[in-house]
Design a protein around this nucleic acid. Sequence first.
RNA 1: GGGGCCGUGGUCUAGCUUGGUAGGAUGCCGGCCUUGGGAGCCGGAGGUCCCGGGUUCAAAUCCCGGCGGCCCCA
Length: 478
Amino acid sequence: MSEREAFELTPKEENFSRWFDEVLFKAEILDERYPVKGMYVWLPFGYELMENVMNVMERLMRQTGHRRVYFPGVVPERVLSREFRFIKGFEDSIYWITRLGKQEIKEKLALRPTSEAIMYEVLNRWIASYKDLPLKIYQIVPVYRYETKATRPMLRVREIVFFKEGHTFHATYDDAVEQVELEVWIYRKFYDELLVPYVVVKTTSWDTFPGAKYNYDLITIMPDGKALELGSAINFGDLFARTYGLEYMDENGERKNVNTTSFGISERSLAALIAIHGDNRGLKLPPKLAPIQVVIVPIPSKGYEEKVLEYAKQVKEMLSDFRVQLDDGEERPGYKFYKWEMKGVPVRVEIGRKEYESRTLTLFRRDRMERDEVPLEGIKDRVKSLFTEIEEEMREQARRYFKERTVKASTLEEIKKGVGEKIVSFPWCGMEECGHEVEEEVGYGILGYEEGALEGTGERCVICGREAKHRAWIGRSY
RNA sequence: GGGGCCGUGGUCUAGCUUGGUAGGAUGCCGGCCUUGGGAGCCGGAGGUCCCGGGUUCAAAUCCCGGCGGCCCCA
C-alpha cells in the first residue's frame, strides 16, 4: 500500500481479508497502527459512522423501554468468579489488574469482559419487589477479552469499543421469553436499517451460551463465505440470578428468583455493513447512516473560480437539511472524486462552469457510479427521493448477496458439496444424535436452526429420514 | 493448536546473503502553472532502520529474547 495507491484497494473478490483491512484504513475508519495487539484507534470519520449506527440501536432500545446506565469498568475477582462455573476457559480470556503502582493488590480486579457480574452484584439492592420488575437497562461501554486466535480489525478484537449490552430482569420465565422475542424484533429492525442481510436461528442445545436456557443468534455471511454472528439474544431463565442471589418478593409475599435476559451488538455490525456493501472503490454507505450524505465538489475554471464557488455555497444552503459538505480544498476534482468514493458518500454534487451557466447540477450516485444532470430547482426533494432509491437498491443488492452465498440442501451429500463455499441450510428432525452426526460428517458446527420452519412441509431429516421440524444452518464461521 | 514469512522518514519499498556514507518513489511544506476522473515544473523539511540484549574496532545487516503484522494447515 503506497500513497500513490491511496485510493486503490486489493480487489475484494481476490482477497477479502486484505480488502477489508485496507478499506478500513483508507476510508479513515480505523488507524491500525497502535502497538497493542487487537486494539485500534477510531478515526473521526469512523467514529461518526459508528455513532450513527449506534443511534439506530439506541432509538430502538428506548422505544422499547430500555434505559441507559453506566456500571464500572472493573470487577473484583470474588464477584466475577461466580460466573466462571458456567464458562469454561472464560477465565483465560480476562485481563487482570494485579498491581497498584509497585504494590501487588490482594484482590485482583478484572477489566470488564461483559457486565452481567458487575450489574447483578448491585441489582440485588435495586430489586426487592415484583413492583420493581421488569427492569430493562443497557449500556454502551468497551469490554476486554484476550482473544488468543489471530486478531482482526473490527471482527476479532481484544477491546470491543462499542459494546452495547442490554440486560433485563423479569418476574416470570414467560416474561423473559417474551422479552427475548422483543430483542429479536429489535435486532431485525436494526439490521434492516443497516441493510445487512441475516438469518435468525436458535442455537443447538450443545452450542448454547453456558448458563443460558436458550439463545437466538443473528447470522450474516461475509464475502469470503464465512458466517458471522451479529448478535445474540439470551434467555438465562433464573440460572444467573440464582448465582448472584437475585430475588424479589411476589404479590403473596413469597421470595422468588428473578428471570434475566441479555442481548447486545458491537462494531461487528458496522464491519458487516462495510464488508457486504463495499466495493473496489471503497465504502458504500446507506444514506441514513453516512456521516456525510452529500458532498459538493466545485470544479473551477479560469475566470469562473468565484462564481462557481458562490453557486456551490448556494447549493449547500439549499441542501442544509442533509449532512452536506462542500469540498473547496486545493486538490483537483478527480482526486476528490476518488477520495469521497472511498468514504462511501452516497451522493456527490459536481458544480462547474457548465452547471453555473445553465442553473443545473450534476448528481453522482456512489452506489451505481452514475451521473445525471438535473435542474437546480427542486434539488432538495430530488436528493431526498434519490436517497430512498439508493436505499431500496442497496437492500435489494443485500438480498441477492445473501441468496448467492447460501444453498438449500436436502441430503448429506448436498451439504458436503456446498459447505466449503457457502452456508448451507438443511432439514433437521431436531434430535441431538442427528445434529452431531451432521457436524461430524461435514466437519463444521451447526450455526443454529430456524425453529419449526419446516413443520408440515414434508421435508425429511438428512440423517434419520424422519419428518424434519427445523431448518438448520451449517458452514464455516468466524 | 502446528508450520512459514516479515518489520527501514507519514506510506510503499531498495539495502541484509558477503557488517563500514541509510537510497528511491509517493506523500508533506513553500512557489509557479492549473483544475470536468489520481496534473506538471522548481525548491525544502522529514529517520530511535520495531524494542531489549549479545557478538564485533564497527550492526539496518550476524545471534538470542520480546512486541507487532501477514500467510498456510488443523
